[in-house]
């Protein structure tokens, strides 16, 4: 596990710098240097007066098996939300009136967020999970070479973190 800083909570009291044994907490980006952070050390987490530092897992457990009927239903709902999102995007690009354009833009964004929630509940929540890896592998058979290149990079990267 490595430490991560929620920069919006950080009050810059910098007590993490006093306790960090490797200097990982001291960076220009405001984020803790993951490569220097000691696995599970958590000295900075406990020292922070603003509760701005937490530990991120290196390995997440494989998500539990979901009810198959429900995942299919959530996938069907995702399909509907996407169709509506597409309709909102079409309205956005064709809109003549500024208020209508704003409405369409908001609907498109909102529908995408709903679609993403359906995607999580249809079994694709954790990037490094088996269901995501299997889905990516299956997808390689039906997409063009440009997308395949992205997918093979993805599978390589996921292999590093899982």
């Amino acid at each position: 596990m490595y430490a991560s800083r929620n920069i919006e909570l950080c009050s810059k009291d910098c007590l993490c710098l006093f306790v960090c044994p490797t200097g990982a907490a001291d960076t220009e980006t405001g984020q803790i240097d993951r490569d220097l952070c000691l696995d599970g050390c958590r000295l900075c987490v406990d020292a922070c007066p603003s509760h701005a530092i937490y530990l991120v897992m290196n390995n997440y457990p494989e998500p539990g098996v979901k009810n198959e009927e429900l995942t299919s239903l959530m996938m069907a709902l995702l399909e509907r939300k996407t169709e509506q999102e597409q309709a909102a995007r079409n309205l956005e690009s064709a809109a003549q009136k500024p208020g209508e354009k704003k409405l369409a833009m908001a609907l498109g964004k909102s529908l995408r967020i709903l679609a993403e929630d359906c995607a999580r509940e249809a079994g694709f929540m954790l990037p490094q999970s088996r269901s995501v890896r299997d889905m990516l592998k299956e997808l390689t058979e039906t997409v063009d070479s440009e997308k395949n290149e992205i997918i093979s990079k993805l599978l390589r990267e996921i292999g590093k973190v899982k």
Binding site: Q31, E79, T82, E83, E85, Q86, E116, A119, G123, V161
Partner: peptide, 27 residues
């Protein structure tokens, strides 16, 4: 489960967000 073609953009934009939360910026 078969995944409808139009579902992929949302599936992947969601996984991008889940990667960002873990600071897996390449992913």
């Amino acid at each position: 489960m078969t995944i409808p073609r139009n579902a992929f953009p949302a599936i992947f934009s969601n996984l991008a967000k889940a990667s960002e939360k873990q600071q897996l910026y390449v992913l």
